[in-house]
């Protein structure tokens, strides 16, 4: 069971969290104006990196807030968690 640091509550067991998929995918301002390719890109295309992955978690059984995390998909180690709306931290080489 992962140990996840909620940026609002601190380290808590994975049991308290739900996973929310890839982070930093903002819903377009005006979906109606988008062509099919761009909409498909937004709706379906997701990264599947080997290494650092920015993903959303929700501390459902805690503060109930969504936040973002950088997790190394090869080791499951979290190198950062940060509030929704914050940019992805620049951590070149981190988690290696």
């Amino acid at each position: 069971m992962l140990l996840i640091t909620c940026p609002h509550c601190g380290p808590r067991p994975e049991l308290e969290f739900t996973h929310g998929g890839e982070a930093h995918i903002a819903r377009p301002e005006n979906p109606a104006a988008m062509n099919a390719e761009d909409w498909t890109e937004y709706l379906y295309m997701r990264a599947n990196p080997k290494g650092l992955h920015a993903e959303r978690w929700r501390h459902l059984h805690g503060c109930a807030r969504f936040f973002n995390a950088l997790r190394d998909t090869t080791t499951d180690q979290f190198v950062a968690t940060y509030a929704t709306g914050q940019p992805r931290p620049d951590l070149k080489g981190a988690g290696q």
């Binding site: 739900t18 929310g20 903002a26 819903r27 959303r56 929700r58 459902l60 109930a64 807030r65 969504f66 929704t84 709306g85």
Partner: peptide
């Protein structure tokens, strides 16, 4: 409720 919270917290804060 989770879907509502998701949109409210992350898309329409």
């Amino acid at each position: 409720l989770a879907m509502m919270e998701d949109y409210l917290q992350t898309e329409w804060p």
